[in-house]
């Protein structure tokens, strides 16, 4: 494998109970790029994203086979008790923001405290740094002790981004991160992603074609649990090879 590939998924199959959700997935995700996983609802995009940081572990009904290599290490072979080390490499942004039931400040320090960083000054600095990175600092600096649930949805999503960045990941996983947000907040998140890709590898799931066109460097098109086509954004959008991709780009199904 070359240096440009961050995540390499090989022959991944995933079942929930007796139902097969992902069928023989082979995907390469390039480093420091925004990779968009595109496809209609219910095609397994979110499940694929969750298997990347082994969140599938917590659902006893899910069975995963195959391999997912991150920097050459097969994360599906990692022992259960070491799985937190893998997850720390990845920040997750879900469809709707789910702030932890605690204060704004504690939402950011949660991951740090769990990794054993407890010095007050260090934590204060980190909180400020990452809230600034998520463009939230100015709005919340006077009320860091307030519950995170008091923020607006858009603010909450940026808080979730800041909280994810605070554990110093290498990869950002985003599952339709703007679907619950208003246009202004959505734009803020998109702009943030373009800015962040210099330092992070970003994998974003979306079913909004326009959004994919706006920010994708690399595209993986999925349909009914299979990867139909993948490649650079110019290739897939400019010159799609598969019939199903063409149909989707025309807007034939959603």
């Amino acid at each position: 494998m070359d240096n440009q590939t961050k995540i390499h998924i090989k022959n991944l199959n995933l079942h929930i109970g007796k139902q097969q959700i992902l069928k023989d997935i082979n995907v390469q995700i390039p480093k420091n790029k925004i990779t968009v996983i595109l496809g209609p609802s219910g095609c397994g995009k979110t499940t694929l994203l969750k298997s990347l940081n082994r969140l599938t572990d917590i659902y006893p009904d899910i069975k995963v086979e195959g391999s997912i290599e991150i920097d050459g290490q097969d994360i599906l072979k990692v022992k259960k008790r070491d799985v937190t080390d893998i997850r720390k490499k990845m920040g997750l942004l879900s469809q709707r923001p789910y702030p932890l039931p605690m204060s704004i400040y504690k939402n950011i320090t949660y991951g740090l405290k769990i990794s054993g960083r407890r010095r007050k000054r260090f934590l204060n600095k980190r909180v400020e740094h990452y809230l600034k990175q998520a463009s939230l600092w100015d709005e919340v600096k006077d009320r860091l002790k307030d519950p995170a649930s008091a923020l607006s949805i858009g603010q909450q999503q940026r808080l979730c981004l800041a909280r994810g960045l605070a554990v110093d990941p290498e990869i950002i996983l985003a599952d339709e991160p703007t679907s619950a947000l208003d246009p202004v907040s959505s734009q803020a998140i998109e702009e943030k992603f373009v800015e962040l890709k210099e330092r992070y590898t970003i994998v974003m799931v979306t079913h909004v074609l326009r959004q994919a066109r706006r920010i994708a460097d690399h595209v993986v098109f999925m349909y009914l649990g299979e990867v139909v086509e993948q490649g650079s954004a110019e290739e897939v959008f400019g010159n799609p090879k598969e019939e199903r991709t063409k149909a989707y780009l025309r807007g034939a199904f959603n």
Binding site: K50, N53, L55, I58, T84, D85, R87, K88, M90, G91, L92, S94, Q95, R96, Y98, L100, P101, Y110, G111, I114, S115, C160, R163, G164, V167, L173
Partner: peptide, 23 residues
């Protein structure tokens, strides 16, 4: 409690038990 809250906590590097206890 939505599963996504558990997922959020786990993705920050918490163990399942830490998630149960703190979140």
């Amino acid at each position: 409690i939505p599963d996504q809250l558990t997922e959020a906590s786990l993705s920050l590097g918490a163990t399942h038990w830490e998630t149960v206890k703190h979140v």
